[in-house]
Design a protein around this nucleic acid. Structure first.
Lengths: 203, 203
DNA sequence: GCGATAACCGTACGGCTATACCGTATAGCC
DNA sequence: GGCTATACGGTATAGCCGTACGGTTATCGC
C-alpha cells in the first residue's frame, strides 16, 4: 500500500493524505471516500502490514511442517523471518516499528500492536506444547514463560540487527542471530521428535 | 525537561515549540534562543533522557559492586532497571520509545539511539569479561555474542512488559522477567566467583 | 431507461506550526 | 557612564495539513 511505501521511503511524518493519494495515483477525495479520517487510513495500513507479515511467517511454518522438520527448526525459521536481515525485511521492520511508535499515543494502533504480539506469542506457546507431545520438550514445562522468552529474544534481536546490520565486533549478523536463536530454542527443545501429527499445528 | 513531560502525558505529536515553552513556563522566543530549530531541541531532549537512564543504571551497578555482589546479580539489577515494571520506568520507557520511533527517520536521533544501545552492549560485554577474570564465566567464551543476547533479551522483555504490564497467563510480569533474566544470565555466568562466597547472596 | 449508489476529482477553508523578526532588559566589561 | 552580548517576551507570516463539500462519471438493479 502507498502508506507503507511513503513510510519506508520518506518516514512517517511524510505520510499526509495528499501525498498518500499522489503516491497511490488517486485523488484526495477518493482516499476520503474509502477512509473517513486519516487515522482510519493509518489503522487500516497497520492492520494490513501486520497480517501480511503474519501470513508470510505462517506460510514458512506450514512449509516446514510439511517437510516434517523438527519443531525447533521450523520455529527458528519463522522467528528469523522477523529479523531485518535483508532489504525486504528491513523496510518491513521500519514500517512496523514506525507504527509501533505511533501506537504509544494512539490507542487504536496500540491495540493492533498488542494483538499482533499476543498472536505471535500464542503461536510459540502452541509450538512448545506440540513439542511436548512429540518429545522434543520435557513434559512438565510451562509453555508460557518459554514463549515470552522466545518472543522477547526475537523482538530484541530484531532491534539489534536493525541498529547494527553489519553485525557486532566482526561477527556477521546472520551468524550471530542464528546461533543465539538456536541456543535459545535449544534451552527449551531439549529432545528429539518421536512422532508428530502435523494436523495439530493448524490454526 | 518539559519535552519529556509532554511526550509522556500527551504523546509525541503534542510536542510543539509553543506548547513546550508553555509547559516550561517560558516564551517561544526563549526556546528559540537556546535551540535554533525544533529538531535541535528534540535532539537535546533525547540525549538528556538517554544519559539520565544510563546514569541511573550505572549508579545501581556501582552500588552492587560496592556490596561485592556476584557480577551476574549486579547485571540482573541493572538490566531490570530498563524494564517498565513501575510507573516511573514505564513513562521513561514511553519517552525513550517515542524518540526511538522518530529515530527511524531522523538520522541525528538515530545516532543517539545507536550509541546508547552500543554503550549498553559494551557494558555487558565488559561485565562478562570481568566474570571470566573472577571465575564466574568460562575462560574461553567470547563476550560479544553473550552481550548481544543479553541486550536483546532486555530490549525484548521491556517490550513484552510494556504491552502486557500485568503479565502473561496469570504469571506476574515481575516474576516472569526475573526468572527469564536469571536463566539468561545463568547460561553465561555458570561458575561462582572465586574471591567471594556468593551463596549468602542467593535466596 | 432510469434512479440510486458508488467511484472518483478538484478545491476551498480553517487551524496549527515552525520560525523569522523586532523590542526590551539585564549583566559584565572597558 | 557607555557598549556589547546574552536572556527573554511578543507577534507576524508563510506554509502545510486534514477535512468538508460540490461536482462528474460509471455501475447496476429493476
Amino acid at each position: 500500500m502507498a502508506v507503507c511505501e511513503l513510510i519506508s521511503n520518506n518516514g512517517f511524518d511524510a505520510v499526509t493524505v495528499a501525498r498518500t493519494a499522489a503516491t497511490a495515483g488517486i485523488s484526495v477525495g477518493l482516499v476520503q471516500h474509502y477512509f473517513r479520517t486519516k487515522d482510519e487510513m493509518l489503522l487500516h495500513a497497520f492492520h494490513h502490514v501486520s497480517t501480511h507479515v503474519r501470513h508470510r511467517i505462517d506460510k514458512r511454518i506450514q512449509a516446514g511442517i510439511e517437510h516434517r522438520r523438527p519443531i525447533a527448526r521450523v520455529l527458528a525459521a519463522g522467528m528469523a523471518e522477523l529479523l531485518p536481515l535483508d532489504a525486504t525485511r528491513r523496510t518491513e521492520f521500519r514500517v512496523m516499528r514506525a507504527f509501533a511508535g505511533r501506537a504509544l499515543d494512539v490507542p487504536a494502533l496500540a491495540e493492533v500492536d498488542i494483538e499482533t504480539a499476543r498472536a505471535l506469542r500464542a503461536d510459540i506457546a502452541r509450538a512448545v506444547r506440540n513439542g511436548k507431545e512429540c518429545g522434543e520438550v520435557e513434559p512438565d514445562l510451562d509453555p508460557w514463560p518459554a514463549a515470552v522468552r522466545l518472543a522477547a529474544v526475537t523482538d530484541g534481536l530484531a532491534l539489534q540487527v536493525y541498529r547494527d546490520p553489519d553485525g557486532v565486533q566482526g561477527i556477521p549478523a546472520k551468524e550471530l542471530t542464528s546461533s543465539i536463536l538456536d541456543a535459545e530454542l535449544g534451552a527449551t527443545f531439549t529432545g528429539q521428535c518421536r512422532q508428530y501429527d502435523s494436523r495439530k499445528d493448524r490454526p
